[in-house]
Design a protein around this nucleic acid. Structure first.
Lengths: 356, 356
DNA sequence: ATGGTTGATGTGAACGATCAAAAACCGGCA
DNA sequence: TGCCGGTTTTTGATCGTTCACATCAACCAT
């Protein structure tokens, strides 16, 4: 049997190609009787419209682009996995596919946008890792290219909830604030913070949560400065910086990542061998679960689902077809939750550790 | 300025569309003088051929399909990340793009193949997690669909190196064998193995490496059976099974994954508090590095690069164009290396731990 | 000169769908 | 019967490329 196309199917049914096209794209235009007949024939023949032909005519590909960010730290990699899975599955359910690409820098990423838009007719992008003065969002908005960001637009002057572009994010600052408050409640007076150099939106947010909690508890600005370190991610760097914070009087440490927290925990344990290390990580990676490290968890699957939802909604809007569905929130801030674990490192009782 | 296409470019240059097409696809057919003129015009105008139009005519999409496997265990997720990055980058360099999809089962995956081939003209697939009696490879070979497998074809009867399809794999068995031999050399006589239920190719291979090493050392078949456990992946399951192995006399344990090894290590440490836990994991995940767990490392980036290389070579072959390049090995078994670490859990000296 | 061969470029058709507009159909009503 | 407004269906044209073949000039051997 030869390949079935609109024409062959139409001929075998005695109707025109356009009628079949209508059954697929605008069923309401077709008389119910013929529609059913055509639908049956489609099912029987296993006909599937060619994406290429459709794409050539309509200039939409049903493909969404995603830059695969370079792996800075394998420990945090697993969260990307969860994000990716959720994106892929949600997109697939909505009839879209995900196209991956990689880029060395934001500028390179923009170059890839151009390429992908021009040659592959990518319908929209999911962008991650937004930061202060992000050129990518500006570039995309200038050209009215649909996209959804995982990460708020970081700007001192504008309210992110009034932003012109869609975004989903997790309230990391609330997570570190909760952790900080918890340590204060436990009697710690000098709670340190280990984070990345400022510039990354998420990282700055996490530091801010800690900072405002200390400030609210009456800790002075000068003291706050002594209690924080801005370093690259990693276990080693975390350990080194922690030594300084301990020297500065810190007895508990809130961290911007699980990697940093692992390094911090080892040092805290050495400095205060008689009690569990007072430290929290971020992302609730399997590593944290494995070693019993408290960590701020992000509902990353929800974030991915929502990102695809807003993006596809936006795309459907530009077509006539997508009138029906209710609009998902254009801006959504999801809560982070603190996963509390007993101590670090792993105690003798395995039954309390690791749920997966 | 309007969109530049073959026709507009051709008109502005006073040549025919086909000449431009030839400059792009078969430069040798065009006289050097005109070729340079056209090339300059292409560069100046920023012209890029439309993938859709090309795809419609040639039935190739320059897209490779990859099923995103469900995350069984977050700990091992990071290795997928590394694999994915390497695939994406290599593919991109070769002019291909990666299209993700997800599926619940092998049968579902085959269904997706059909769909993707028919509607999206996917040129080939990368398949992972091959196992005994894998229907996917058979299905793809029956239809002469290009693909490269990460994982050997597992069959008792046929030599994988004579397989009709391309594959890359890591010699996991050699890795576990090395670990086992090392424990034996250290004086352990009862070295246990923690692995998954048989059926997964990689898992069975890892068990086989341990088994043949024990057998070569003169351990009897009955004893070997007592020293192994087949369980689902996870820290908990690993811990539980380890208790049984210890009861059976095991003093060292080789594991099929870092998750299992984490569970095993905790139990070994409890049972033999006076010495470091004799245990090895698999995949050398960041968790292993973080807690100082020895682990068999896979050169996963190399595997990904090679998978793309054989696949794209295969694809180029079917075209006239790809005559020049030397053929990469159709079957490649990469060596695994044992990353030896001092002990578990993490000792006081942070400086010996975690390199990333 | 004649004809055959080779190399460079141009031309019509095709890939398989959608768009825009024209045509056929339909019952209702003057 | 004939015309109307609305619904349903059909008909060209088109998206941007490559394929298969036609054309044409230049060159060489006879």
């Amino acid at each position: 049997m030869a390949k079935t196309t609109l024409v062959t199917l139409a001929d075998s049914l005695g109707v025109s190609r356009q009628t079949i096209s209508n059954v697929i794209n605008a069923p309401h235009r077709v008389k119910p009787a013929t529609r059913e007949r055509v639908e049956a024939a489609i099912a029987a023949s296993g006909y599937r419209p060619s994406a290429a032909a459709r794409q050539l005519r309509t200039r939409r590909s049903m493909n969404l682009g995603l830059r695969l960010m370079p792996v800075h730290d394998g420990i945090n990699g697993s969260i990307l996995d969860r994000f990716l899975h959720s994106l892929t599955e949600t997109a697939q359910r909505e009839g879209y596919r995900l196209t991956l690409f990689s880029a060395d820098s934001d500028a390179d990423e923009i170059g890839q946008y151009e390429e992908l838009l021009q040659v592959a007719d990518i319908d929209g992008f999911v962008i991650t890792g937004t930061h202060h003065g992000d050129r990518r969002t500006a570039w995309l908005m200038d050209r009215d290219i649909p996209f959804a960001a995982f990460g708020r637009p970081w700007s001192e002057t504008e309210d992110p909830f009034l932003s012109r572009h869609a975004w989903v994010d997790v309230d990391g600052g609330a997570g570190t604030a909760e952790a900080t408050a918890l340590f204060l409640a436990e009697g710690h007076t000098s709670v340190g913070f280990l984070g990345w150099p400022s510039g990354s939106g998420a990282g700055d947010d996490r530091r801010a949560g800690w900072q405002r909690t200390l400030a609210a508890a009456g800790v002075g600005t000068a003291r706050i400065l002594e209690l924080t370190a801005s370093i690259d991610d990693g276990i080693q760097t975390g350990a080194v910086a922690t030594r300084h914070l301990i020297a500065a009087g810190a007895t508990a440490i809130v961290c911007a990542s699980d990697s940093l927290a692992l390094g911090a925990a080892a040092q805290l344990r050495e400095a205060f061998p008689d009690r569990p290390a007072a430290v929290t990580g971020f992302d609730d990676t399997p590593v944290a679960a494995a070693v019993g490290l408290s960590s701020v968890a992000q509902p990353i699957e929800d974030a991915a689902r929502h990102a695809i939802a807003v993006l596809t909604h936006q795309l459907a809007e530009t077509t006539a077809a997508g009138a029906g569905a209710p609009a998902p929130d254009k801006h959504l801030l999801l809560p982070a939750t603190l996963a509390r674990r007993t101590s670090y490192p792993l105690g003798g009782d395995i039954s309390t550790v690791g749920s997966s």
